[in-house]
Design a protein around this nucleic acid. Structure first.
Lengths: 222, 222
DNA sequence: GCGGTTATTTACTCACGAGTATATAACCTA
DNA sequence: TAGGTTATATACTCGTGAGTAAATAACCGC
Protein backbone atom coordinates (compact mmCIF):
# COMPACT_ATOMS: atom_id res chain seq x y z
CA UNK A 1 0.00 0.00 0.00
CA UNK A 2 3.04 2.32 -0.07
CA UNK A 3 2.56 4.60 -3.06
CA UNK A 4 5.39 4.41 -5.56
CA UNK A 5 5.77 5.86 -9.07
CA UNK A 6 5.60 3.83 -12.30
CA UNK A 7 6.86 0.42 -11.35
CA UNK A 8 10.33 -0.47 -12.60
CA UNK A 9 10.91 -3.91 -14.08
CA UNK A 10 13.96 -4.11 -11.88
CA UNK A 11 12.60 -4.40 -8.39
CA UNK A 12 14.55 -2.60 -5.69
CA UNK A 13 15.95 -4.37 -2.68
CA UNK A 14 13.09 -3.01 -0.68
CA UNK A 15 10.55 -4.42 -3.10
CA UNK A 16 12.10 -7.82 -2.81
CA UNK A 17 12.00 -7.70 0.94
CA UNK A 18 8.35 -6.70 0.80
CA UNK A 19 7.60 -9.45 -1.65
CA UNK A 20 9.22 -11.92 0.65
CA UNK A 21 7.07 -10.79 3.55
CA UNK A 22 3.98 -10.88 1.38
CA UNK A 23 4.69 -14.46 0.45
CA UNK A 24 5.26 -15.37 4.05
CA UNK A 25 1.98 -13.73 5.05
CA UNK A 26 0.08 -15.42 2.28
CA UNK A 27 1.33 -18.83 3.35
CA UNK A 28 0.54 -18.15 6.99
CA UNK A 29 -2.94 -17.04 6.04
CA UNK A 30 -3.49 -20.15 3.98
CA UNK A 31 -2.29 -22.23 6.92
CA UNK A 32 -4.46 -20.59 9.55
CA UNK A 33 -7.52 -20.79 7.34
CA UNK A 34 -6.99 -24.46 6.85
CA UNK A 35 -6.32 -25.04 10.55
CA UNK A 36 -9.58 -23.29 11.40
CA UNK A 37 -11.57 -25.03 8.76
CA UNK A 38 -10.26 -28.56 8.83
CA UNK A 39 -8.34 -28.70 12.08
CA UNK A 40 -4.61 -28.83 12.68
CA UNK A 41 -4.11 -32.56 12.28
CA UNK A 42 -6.31 -32.84 9.25
CA UNK A 43 -4.35 -30.07 7.56
CA UNK A 44 -1.45 -31.32 5.48
CA UNK A 45 1.31 -28.95 4.57
CA UNK A 46 1.18 -30.36 1.06
CA UNK A 47 -2.36 -29.06 0.76
CA UNK A 48 -1.55 -25.67 2.21
CA UNK A 49 1.32 -25.36 -0.22
CA UNK A 50 -0.78 -26.52 -3.14
CA UNK A 51 -3.45 -23.95 -2.31
CA UNK A 52 -0.84 -21.28 -2.96
CA UNK A 53 0.60 -23.04 -6.03
CA UNK A 54 3.87 -24.01 -4.41
CA UNK A 55 5.26 -27.16 -2.83
CA UNK A 56 5.95 -28.21 0.72
CA UNK A 57 9.61 -27.26 0.97
CA UNK A 58 8.63 -23.70 0.15
CA UNK A 59 6.57 -23.67 3.33
CA UNK A 60 9.55 -24.81 5.33
CA UNK A 61 11.60 -22.13 3.68
CA UNK A 62 9.21 -19.37 4.72
CA UNK A 63 7.58 -20.62 7.89
CA UNK A 64 9.41 -23.52 9.48
CA UNK A 65 7.85 -26.73 10.66
CA UNK A 66 4.21 -27.41 11.35
CA UNK A 67 4.47 -26.75 15.07
CA UNK A 68 6.16 -23.41 14.48
CA UNK A 69 3.43 -22.45 12.04
CA UNK A 70 0.65 -23.25 14.48
CA UNK A 71 2.41 -21.45 17.28
CA UNK A 72 2.91 -18.38 15.13
CA UNK A 73 -0.83 -18.35 14.41
CA UNK A 74 -1.94 -18.51 18.01
CA UNK A 75 0.86 -16.15 19.04
CA UNK A 76 -0.46 -13.51 16.70
CA UNK A 77 -3.97 -13.88 18.04
CA UNK A 78 -2.78 -13.66 21.62
CA UNK A 79 -0.54 -10.71 20.96
CA UNK A 80 -3.47 -8.87 19.40
CA UNK A 81 -5.50 -9.47 22.51
CA UNK A 82 -2.66 -8.40 24.73
CA UNK A 83 -2.31 -5.21 22.77
CA UNK A 84 -6.00 -4.42 22.97
CA UNK A 85 -5.87 -4.94 26.70
CA UNK A 86 -2.82 -2.80 27.05
CA UNK A 87 -4.37 0.08 25.16
CA UNK A 88 -7.53 -0.17 27.22
CA UNK A 89 -5.55 -0.20 30.44
CA UNK A 90 -4.14 3.17 29.51
CA UNK A 91 -7.50 4.86 28.98
CA UNK A 92 -8.48 4.84 32.63
CA UNK A 93 -12.11 4.89 33.73
CA UNK A 94 -13.92 2.61 36.14
CA UNK A 95 -13.18 -1.08 36.25
CA UNK A 96 -16.47 -1.74 34.54
CA UNK A 97 -15.73 0.66 31.69
CA UNK A 98 -12.34 -0.86 31.06
CA UNK A 99 -13.74 -4.36 31.34
CA UNK A 100 -16.36 -3.57 28.77
CA UNK A 101 -13.91 -2.04 26.29
CA UNK A 102 -11.58 -4.95 26.78
CA UNK A 103 -14.27 -7.56 26.14
CA UNK A 104 -15.29 -5.74 23.02
CA UNK A 105 -11.77 -5.85 21.64
CA UNK A 106 -11.43 -9.45 22.67
CA UNK A 107 -14.69 -10.36 20.95
CA UNK A 108 -13.66 -8.69 17.71
CA UNK A 109 -10.42 -10.62 17.62
CA UNK A 110 -12.37 -13.83 18.12
CA UNK A 111 -14.06 -13.26 14.79
CA UNK A 112 -10.73 -13.06 12.98
CA UNK A 113 -8.53 -15.86 11.67
CA UNK A 114 -5.74 -15.74 14.21
CA UNK A 115 -8.13 -15.12 17.05
CA UNK A 116 -10.29 -18.07 16.11
CA UNK A 117 -7.19 -20.18 15.94
CA UNK A 118 -6.54 -19.61 19.63
CA UNK A 119 -9.67 -21.30 20.85
CA UNK A 120 -9.75 -23.93 18.16
CA UNK A 121 -6.27 -25.02 19.16
CA UNK A 122 -6.00 -27.44 22.02
CA UNK A 123 -2.82 -27.30 24.08
CA UNK A 124 -1.77 -30.80 23.19
CA UNK A 125 -1.56 -30.01 19.51
CA UNK A 126 1.57 -27.99 20.16
CA UNK A 127 5.01 -29.28 21.01
CA UNK A 128 5.90 -29.14 24.70
CA UNK A 129 7.95 -25.99 24.17
CA UNK A 130 5.33 -24.14 22.15
CA UNK A 131 2.66 -25.33 24.53
CA UNK A 132 4.47 -23.79 27.45
CA UNK A 133 4.71 -20.46 25.67
CA UNK A 134 1.08 -20.71 24.55
CA UNK A 135 -0.07 -21.30 28.08
CA UNK A 136 2.09 -18.56 29.47
CA UNK A 137 0.58 -16.04 27.08
CA UNK A 138 -2.94 -17.17 27.90
CA UNK A 139 -2.26 -17.04 31.61
CA UNK A 140 -0.90 -13.54 31.31
CA UNK A 141 -3.99 -12.33 29.49
CA UNK A 142 -6.24 -14.07 31.92
CA UNK A 143 -4.50 -12.56 34.90
CA UNK A 144 -4.80 -9.08 33.43
CA UNK A 145 -8.49 -9.42 32.76
CA UNK A 146 -9.03 -10.79 36.23
CA UNK A 147 -7.27 -7.82 37.69
CA UNK A 148 -9.59 -5.47 35.84
CA UNK A 149 -12.56 -7.39 37.23
CA UNK A 150 -11.14 -7.11 40.72
CA UNK A 151 -10.66 -3.39 40.30
CA UNK A 152 -14.21 -3.07 39.07
CA UNK A 153 -15.51 -4.91 42.09
CA UNK A 154 -13.35 -2.77 44.33
CA UNK A 155 -14.59 0.51 42.86
CA UNK A 156 -18.18 -0.72 42.92
CA UNK A 157 -18.66 -0.61 39.16
CA UNK A 158 -18.83 -4.40 38.81
CA UNK A 159 -21.10 -6.64 40.82
CA UNK A 160 -19.22 -8.61 43.53
CA UNK A 161 -18.29 -12.24 42.95
CA UNK A 162 -15.44 -14.66 42.37
CA UNK A 163 -13.19 -12.84 39.87
CA UNK A 164 -11.74 -16.08 38.59
CA UNK A 165 -15.12 -17.51 37.70
CA UNK A 166 -16.31 -14.20 36.34
CA UNK A 167 -13.32 -13.98 34.03
CA UNK A 168 -13.77 -17.53 32.80
CA UNK A 169 -17.45 -16.99 32.16
CA UNK A 170 -16.93 -13.80 30.19
CA UNK A 171 -13.98 -14.98 28.14
CA UNK A 172 -15.50 -18.42 27.72
CA UNK A 173 -18.62 -16.95 26.17
CA UNK A 174 -16.44 -14.90 23.82
CA UNK A 175 -14.08 -17.73 23.02
CA UNK A 176 -17.06 -19.69 21.88
CA UNK A 177 -17.72 -17.14 19.16
CA UNK A 178 -14.85 -18.72 17.28
CA UNK A 179 -16.79 -21.95 17.16
CA UNK A 180 -20.07 -20.70 15.79
CA UNK A 181 -19.48 -17.37 14.06
CA UNK A 182 -19.88 -17.50 10.32
CA UNK A 183 -18.64 -14.44 8.43
CA UNK A 184 -21.01 -15.27 5.59
CA UNK A 185 -23.94 -15.36 8.01
CA UNK A 186 -26.49 -12.64 8.68
CA UNK A 187 -24.56 -10.76 11.37
CA UNK A 188 -21.37 -8.82 10.86
CA UNK A 189 -18.41 -9.45 13.12
CA UNK A 190 -19.00 -6.12 14.79
CA UNK A 191 -22.65 -6.86 15.48
CA UNK A 192 -21.75 -10.21 16.96
CA UNK A 193 -19.06 -8.71 19.14
CA UNK A 194 -21.29 -5.96 20.46
CA UNK A 195 -24.33 -8.06 21.17
CA UNK A 196 -22.32 -10.80 22.85
CA UNK A 197 -20.57 -8.34 25.13
CA UNK A 198 -23.86 -6.60 25.93
CA UNK A 199 -25.46 -9.94 26.81
CA UNK A 200 -22.60 -10.97 29.05
CA UNK A 201 -22.57 -7.70 30.93
CA UNK A 202 -26.28 -7.41 31.29
CA UNK A 203 -27.06 -10.99 32.32
CA UNK A 204 -30.47 -12.59 32.03
CA UNK A 205 -32.43 -11.30 34.99
CA UNK A 206 -34.76 -8.38 34.51
CA UNK A 207 -34.46 -5.46 36.88
CA UNK A 208 -31.13 -3.97 35.90
CA UNK A 209 -31.23 -0.22 36.39
CA UNK A 210 -28.97 1.26 33.78
CA UNK A 211 -29.19 0.33 30.11
CA UNK A 212 -26.37 1.46 27.93
CA UNK A 213 -26.83 1.90 24.21
CA UNK A 214 -25.36 -0.85 22.10
CA UNK A 215 -23.72 1.46 19.65
CA UNK A 216 -22.19 4.34 21.55
CA UNK A 217 -19.22 5.99 19.97
CA UNK A 218 -16.65 5.34 22.70
CA UNK A 219 -16.47 1.67 21.78
CA UNK A 220 -15.15 2.52 18.39
CA UNK A 221 -17.85 0.68 16.52
CA UNK A 222 -17.59 0.82 12.76
CA UNK B 1 -23.73 -52.88 43.16
CA UNK B 2 -26.59 -55.44 42.90
CA UNK B 3 -26.42 -57.55 46.07
CA UNK B 4 -26.12 -61.25 45.39
CA UNK B 5 -25.32 -64.15 47.70
CA UNK B 6 -21.98 -65.95 47.87
CA UNK B 7 -20.60 -65.77 44.37
CA UNK B 8 -20.57 -69.02 42.44
CA UNK B 9 -17.43 -69.93 40.50
CA UNK B 10 -19.72 -70.76 37.58
CA UNK B 11 -20.95 -67.41 36.39
CA UNK B 12 -24.55 -67.28 35.26
CA UNK B 13 -25.46 -66.11 31.81
CA UNK B 14 -26.52 -62.83 33.33
CA UNK B 15 -23.15 -62.39 35.01
CA UNK B 16 -21.41 -62.93 31.73
CA UNK B 17 -23.57 -60.38 30.01
CA UNK B 18 -22.84 -57.91 32.78
CA UNK B 19 -19.17 -58.61 32.57
CA UNK B 20 -19.27 -57.95 28.88
CA UNK B 21 -20.94 -54.59 29.43
CA UNK B 22 -18.47 -53.74 32.17
CA UNK B 23 -15.60 -54.38 29.84
CA UNK B 24 -17.20 -52.29 27.14
CA UNK B 25 -17.74 -49.46 29.59
CA UNK B 26 -14.23 -49.65 30.89
CA UNK B 27 -12.80 -49.40 27.39
CA UNK B 28 -15.06 -46.49 26.51
CA UNK B 29 -14.02 -44.72 29.69
CA UNK B 30 -10.38 -45.26 28.91
CA UNK B 31 -10.96 -43.89 25.42
CA UNK B 32 -12.84 -40.77 26.46
CA UNK B 33 -10.29 -39.98 29.14
CA UNK B 34 -7.52 -40.19 26.61
CA UNK B 35 -9.45 -38.14 24.06
CA UNK B 36 -10.00 -35.42 26.64
CA UNK B 37 -6.47 -35.48 27.90
CA UNK B 38 -4.41 -35.93 24.75
CA UNK B 39 -6.89 -35.15 22.01
CA UNK B 40 -8.52 -37.45 19.51
CA UNK B 41 -5.75 -37.57 16.94
CA UNK B 42 -3.00 -37.94 19.48
CA UNK B 43 -4.80 -40.88 21.05
CA UNK B 44 -3.79 -44.20 19.57
CA UNK B 45 -6.07 -47.16 20.04
CA UNK B 46 -2.99 -49.19 20.88
CA UNK B 47 -2.43 -46.97 23.90
CA UNK B 48 -6.05 -47.07 24.99
CA UNK B 49 -5.97 -50.85 24.76
CA UNK B 50 -2.68 -51.08 26.59
CA UNK B 51 -4.03 -48.91 29.41
CA UNK B 52 -6.59 -51.64 30.05
CA UNK B 53 -4.11 -54.48 29.54
CA UNK B 54 -5.54 -55.66 26.25
CA UNK B 55 -4.63 -55.20 22.59
CA UNK B 56 -6.15 -53.21 19.78
CA UNK B 57 -8.35 -55.88 18.22
CA UNK B 58 -10.14 -56.19 21.56
CA UNK B 59 -11.20 -52.58 21.19
CA UNK B 60 -12.62 -53.28 17.79
CA UNK B 61 -14.43 -56.27 19.23
CA UNK B 62 -16.12 -54.18 21.91
CA UNK B 63 -16.41 -50.72 20.45
CA UNK B 64 -15.89 -50.62 16.70
CA UNK B 65 -13.61 -48.25 14.87
CA UNK B 66 -12.15 -45.01 16.13
CA UNK B 67 -14.83 -42.83 14.63
CA UNK B 68 -17.59 -44.91 16.20
CA UNK B 69 -15.87 -44.65 19.56
CA UNK B 70 -15.63 -40.89 19.41
CA UNK B 71 -19.19 -40.56 18.27
CA UNK B 72 -20.42 -42.78 21.08
CA UNK B 73 -18.60 -40.52 23.56
CA UNK B 74 -20.13 -37.29 22.33
CA UNK B 75 -23.49 -38.98 21.83
CA UNK B 76 -23.59 -39.91 25.48
CA UNK B 77 -22.78 -36.41 26.56
CA UNK B 78 -25.39 -34.92 24.29
CA UNK B 79 -28.04 -37.42 25.32
CA UNK B 80 -27.39 -36.55 28.96
CA UNK B 81 -27.94 -32.91 28.18
CA UNK B 82 -31.07 -33.66 26.23
CA UNK B 83 -32.44 -35.65 29.11
CA UNK B 84 -31.73 -32.91 31.62
CA UNK B 85 -33.49 -30.44 29.39
CA UNK B 86 -36.44 -32.75 28.93
CA UNK B 87 -36.87 -33.25 32.65
CA UNK B 88 -36.67 -29.51 33.26
CA UNK B 89 -39.22 -28.82 30.56
CA UNK B 90 -41.71 -30.95 32.48
CA UNK B 91 -41.37 -29.07 35.74
CA UNK B 92 -43.06 -25.93 34.54
CA UNK B 93 -42.34 -22.55 36.08
CA UNK B 94 -41.33 -19.31 34.40
CA UNK B 95 -38.98 -19.29 31.46
CA UNK B 96 -36.28 -17.91 33.72
CA UNK B 97 -36.70 -20.67 36.27
CA UNK B 98 -36.50 -23.37 33.65
CA UNK B 99 -33.58 -21.67 31.97
CA UNK B 100 -31.72 -21.57 35.22
CA UNK B 101 -32.35 -25.22 36.06
CA UNK B 102 -31.37 -26.21 32.57
CA UNK B 103 -28.10 -24.31 32.65
CA UNK B 104 -27.26 -25.89 35.97
CA UNK B 105 -27.75 -29.40 34.58
CA UNK B 106 -25.80 -28.44 31.48
CA UNK B 107 -22.95 -27.09 33.55
CA UNK B 108 -22.72 -30.24 35.66
CA UNK B 109 -22.47 -32.40 32.57
CA UNK B 110 -19.67 -30.19 31.30
CA UNK B 111 -17.56 -31.27 34.25
CA UNK B 112 -17.94 -34.95 33.37
CA UNK B 113 -15.97 -37.04 30.91
CA UNK B 114 -18.55 -37.41 28.16
CA UNK B 115 -19.72 -33.85 28.55
CA UNK B 116 -16.22 -32.49 28.26
CA UNK B 117 -15.73 -34.59 25.17
CA UNK B 118 -18.50 -32.68 23.40
CA UNK B 119 -16.77 -29.35 23.46
CA UNK B 120 -13.29 -30.72 23.04
CA UNK B 121 -14.37 -32.46 19.87
CA UNK B 122 -14.32 -30.43 16.70
CA UNK B 123 -16.80 -31.42 14.01
CA UNK B 124 -14.14 -32.30 11.50
CA UNK B 125 -12.69 -35.01 13.70
CA UNK B 126 -15.73 -37.15 12.97
CA UNK B 127 -16.56 -38.94 9.74
CA UNK B 128 -19.10 -37.15 7.55
CA UNK B 129 -21.89 -39.43 8.76
CA UNK B 130 -21.10 -39.10 12.45
CA UNK B 131 -20.58 -35.41 12.01
CA UNK B 132 -24.06 -35.00 10.60
CA UNK B 133 -25.57 -36.81 13.58
CA UNK B 134 -23.37 -34.86 15.98
CA UNK B 135 -24.49 -31.58 14.51
CA UNK B 136 -28.14 -32.61 14.46
CA UNK B 137 -28.04 -33.43 18.15
CA UNK B 138 -26.34 -30.16 18.98
CA UNK B 139 -28.78 -28.21 16.89
CA UNK B 140 -31.70 -29.86 18.61
CA UNK B 141 -30.37 -28.97 22.05
CA UNK B 142 -29.63 -25.47 20.96
CA UNK B 143 -33.09 -24.97 19.56
CA UNK B 144 -34.69 -26.20 22.75
CA UNK B 145 -32.67 -23.88 24.93
CA UNK B 146 -33.41 -21.00 22.64
CA UNK B 147 -37.10 -21.73 22.91
CA UNK B 148 -36.88 -21.56 26.70
CA UNK B 149 -35.14 -18.21 26.42
CA UNK B 150 -37.86 -16.97 24.10
CA UNK B 151 -40.53 -18.10 26.52
CA UNK B 152 -38.74 -16.37 29.35
CA UNK B 153 -38.59 -13.15 27.38
CA UNK B 154 -42.25 -13.52 26.50
CA UNK B 155 -43.35 -14.04 30.10
CA UNK B 156 -41.13 -11.20 31.27
CA UNK B 157 -38.90 -13.36 33.45
CA UNK B 158 -35.86 -12.96 31.19
CA UNK B 159 -34.48 -9.66 29.99
CA UNK B 160 -35.29 -8.95 26.31
CA UNK B 161 -32.65 -9.52 23.66
CA UNK B 162 -31.63 -11.67 20.71
CA UNK B 163 -32.40 -15.23 21.85
CA UNK B 164 -29.83 -16.71 19.50
CA UNK B 165 -27.01 -14.64 20.89
CA UNK B 166 -28.22 -15.12 24.44
CA UNK B 167 -28.20 -18.89 24.01
CA UNK B 168 -24.74 -18.88 22.49
CA UNK B 169 -23.38 -16.68 25.24
CA UNK B 170 -24.80 -18.82 28.04
CA UNK B 171 -23.89 -22.19 26.56
CA UNK B 172 -20.55 -20.90 25.35
CA UNK B 173 -19.58 -19.83 28.84
CA UNK B 174 -20.58 -23.28 30.12
CA UNK B 175 -18.93 -25.15 27.28
CA UNK B 176 -15.74 -23.45 28.21
CA UNK B 177 -15.82 -25.13 31.60
CA UNK B 178 -14.69 -28.27 29.84
CA UNK B 179 -11.51 -26.48 28.85
CA UNK B 180 -10.40 -25.18 32.23
CA UNK B 181 -12.12 -27.20 34.93
CA UNK B 182 -9.73 -29.39 36.89
CA UNK B 183 -11.39 -31.98 39.14
CA UNK B 184 -8.30 -32.03 41.29
CA UNK B 185 -8.46 -28.27 41.74
CA UNK B 186 -9.87 -26.31 44.67
CA UNK B 187 -13.50 -26.18 43.53
CA UNK B 188 -15.84 -29.13 43.27
CA UNK B 189 -17.77 -29.70 40.06
CA UNK B 190 -20.93 -28.62 41.81
CA UNK B 191 -19.40 -25.39 43.04
CA UNK B 192 -18.13 -24.59 39.58
CA UNK B 193 -21.47 -25.32 37.99
CA UNK B 194 -23.39 -23.18 40.45
CA UNK B 195 -21.11 -20.20 40.44
CA UNK B 196 -20.81 -20.16 36.65
CA UNK B 197 -24.56 -20.26 36.20
CA UNK B 198 -25.04 -17.56 38.81
CA UNK B 199 -22.50 -15.35 37.09
CA UNK B 200 -24.09 -15.81 33.68
CA UNK B 201 -27.57 -15.02 34.93
CA UNK B 202 -26.55 -12.09 37.05
CA UNK B 203 -24.25 -10.38 34.61
CA UNK B 204 -21.63 -7.83 35.62
CA UNK B 205 -23.49 -4.61 36.14
CA UNK B 206 -24.48 -3.61 39.63
CA UNK B 207 -28.11 -2.68 40.23
CA UNK B 208 -29.87 -5.99 39.85
CA UNK B 209 -32.87 -6.13 42.16
CA UNK B 210 -33.30 -9.75 43.20
CA UNK B 211 -30.46 -11.89 44.48
CA UNK B 212 -31.15 -15.59 44.64
CA UNK B 213 -29.23 -17.83 47.00
CA UNK B 214 -26.56 -19.92 45.38
CA UNK B 215 -27.48 -23.09 47.16
CA UNK B 216 -31.25 -23.36 47.29
CA UNK B 217 -32.71 -26.84 47.44
CA UNK B 218 -34.75 -26.76 44.25
CA UNK B 219 -31.65 -26.96 42.11
CA UNK B 220 -30.86 -30.38 43.46
CA UNK B 221 -27.41 -29.47 44.62
CA UNK B 222 -25.48 -32.29 46.18
C1' DG C 1 28.07 -13.69 -18.84
C1' DC C 2 30.27 -15.34 -14.10
C1' DG C 3 29.84 -16.44 -9.26
C1' DG C 4 27.04 -16.33 -5.57
C1' DT C 5 22.81 -15.88 -3.28
C1' DT C 6 17.85 -16.61 -3.16
C1' DA C 7 13.89 -19.28 -4.25
C1' DT C 8 11.70 -23.47 -5.44
C1' DT C 9 11.21 -28.28 -7.02
C1' DT C 10 11.80 -33.29 -7.39
C1' DA C 11 12.12 -37.24 -5.17
C1' DC C 12 12.93 -39.41 -1.60
C1' DT C 13 12.89 -41.43 3.88
C1' DC C 14 10.71 -42.60 7.79
C1' DA C 15 7.53 -43.29 11.56
C1' DC C 16 3.24 -43.90 13.06
C1' DG C 17 -1.12 -45.72 13.61
C1' DA C 18 -5.70 -47.45 11.75
C1' DG C 19 -7.58 -51.39 10.46
C1' DT C 20 -7.63 -56.66 9.55
C1' DA C 21 -6.68 -61.69 8.55
C1' DT C 22 -5.68 -65.35 11.05
C1' DA C 23 -4.48 -68.11 14.88
C1' DT C 24 -5.67 -69.60 19.32
C1' DA C 25 -7.25 -69.72 23.88
C1' DA C 26 -11.08 -70.04 27.11
C1' DC C 27 -15.18 -71.66 28.10
C1' DC C 28 -19.85 -73.27 27.74
C1' DT C 29 -23.22 -76.86 26.15
C1' DA C 30 -24.65 -81.20 25.01
C1' DT D 1 -14.78 -84.68 25.34
C1' DA D 2 -16.30 -82.89 20.87
C1' DG D 3 -18.04 -78.91 18.65
C1' DG D 4 -19.37 -74.35 18.75
C1' DT D 5 -19.18 -69.82 20.39
C1' DT D 6 -16.93 -66.08 22.68
C1' DA D 7 -12.89 -63.56 23.67
C1' DT D 8 -8.23 -62.15 22.84
C1' DA D 9 -3.64 -62.01 20.74
C1' DT D 10 -0.03 -62.09 16.99
C1' DA D 11 1.52 -60.28 13.11
C1' DC D 12 0.73 -58.26 9.39
C1' DT D 13 -0.86 -54.33 5.38
C1' DC D 14 -1.33 -49.99 3.95
C1' DG D 15 -1.90 -45.08 3.49
C1' DT D 16 -0.60 -40.76 4.90
C1' DG D 17 1.99 -37.02 5.85
C1' DA D 18 6.05 -34.69 8.19
C1' DG D 19 10.40 -33.64 7.25
C1' DT D 20 14.79 -33.40 4.21
C1' DA D 21 18.71 -33.97 0.77
C1' DA D 22 19.94 -32.63 -3.36
C1' DA D 23 19.20 -30.69 -7.75
C1' DT D 24 18.05 -26.66 -10.26
C1' DA D 25 16.13 -22.44 -11.60
C1' DA D 26 15.89 -17.42 -11.16
C1' DC D 27 18.02 -13.51 -10.36
C1' DC D 28 21.31 -9.97 -8.81
C1' DG D 29 25.54 -7.39 -8.69
C1' DC D 30 29.63 -6.78 -10.89
Amino acid sequence: MTERPTRSPWPSRRDRETERMDKREALLQAAVRSFNEKGFHATSLDDVAASMNVTKPTIYYYLGNKDEILFECVRRGLVSIREIIRSVEETGGTGYERFRALLLGYARIMTEDFGMCITRTADHELSPESRARFRALKREIDATIRRVVEEGIADGSIVPGDPRIMTFVATGALNWIARWYDPSGPMSAEEVAQSCVETILRGFRPGTIAMEGTKNADTGSI
